[in-house]
Simulated assay, not measured.
Amino acid sequence: MAIFEYKAYDTSGGKVNGQVEAKDKPSALLELKKQGLMPTEVKQVAAQTGGISLFSSKVSLADLEFLTSELSLLLESGVKIDRGIDIIKRTKAKPALALLLNNISKDLKKGKSLSQSFADNDDVFDPLYCNLIELGEASGNLSEVFDGLSKDLKFKRDLQRKIISSLAYPAVIFFVCLLSIFFIFNFIIPKMSSMFDGVQELPWYTQVMLSTSEWMMNYQGLLLLGVVAGIIGLVYAAKLPGFIRWWQKVCLKLPVISKATVIVERIRFNSGLAMMVKAGVQIDRAIVLAGGSIKNSILKREMDIAKSKVKGGSALTPALQQTSLYPDFFVSLLEVGEESGNLEKVFDEIATRSRKEFESWTESMTTLLEPLMILFMGGFVGGVVVMMLLSMVSINDIGI
Rank of each mutant, 00 (worst) to 15 (best):
A2I: 00
F4S: 09
E5R: 15
Y9T: 06
D10Q: 10
S12N: 09
G13Y: 06
G13K: 11
E21H: 11
K23Y: 10
K25V: 11
P39V: 00
E41W: 05
V42L: 06
A46Q: 06
G51T: 00
F55I: 01
S60R: 14
L61M: 08
D63H: 08
L71W: 02
S77R: 08
R90C: 01
T91G: 12
T91A: 11
A96H: 04
L97N: 05
A98W: 00
A98L: 04
I104G: 03
S105N: 15
K109T: 02
K110G: 13
K110D: 14
K112Q: 12
S113M: 02
S115G: 10
A119L: 07
L128R: 02
N131G: 11
I133F: 03
E134G: 07
A138S: 11
N141I: 04
S143R: 11
L149H: 01
L153C: 10
L153I: 04
R157D: 13
D158G: 03
I164D: 14
L167H: 07
Y169F: 09
V172S: 13
F174C: 09
C177M: 15
F183E: 11
I184L: 15
F187D: 13
K191W: 00
M195Q: 15
M195C: 05
G198A: 12
Q200Y: 01
Q200F: 00
E201G: 04
M216C: 07
G221I: 05
L225Y: 06
G226M: 07
G226F: 03
A229E: 06
I231W: 08
Y236G: 02
A237T: 02
G242D: 11
Q248N: 15
C251E: 10
C251R: 12
L254Y: 10
P255Y: 14
S258I: 01
I263D: 02
V264F: 09
E265K: 01
R268Y: 09
R268S: 07
F269S: 05
N270D: 03
G272C: 05
V277Q: 04
G280E: 08
Q282E: 13
R285S: 14
A286Y: 02
V288M: 10
L289E: 11
G291S: 05
G292T: 05
S293G: 11
S297N: 13
K300E: 14
A306I: 02
V310E: 08
G312H: 08
G313R: 05
Q321Y: 05
S324E: 10
D328P: 00
F330D: 14
S332D: 13
S332N: 14
E335D: 09
E344G: 07
E344D: 13
K345T: 06
T352K: 15
R355L: 03
K356V: 10
F358N: 13
F358M: 15
E359S: 12
E359M: 08
E363T: 03
E363Y: 04
T366R: 08
T367V: 01
T367R: 15
T367W: 01
T367I: 03
L369F: 11
P371A: 02
M373T: 06
V381Q: 12
G383N: 13
V386Y: 13
L390T: 09
V393G: 04
V393K: 13
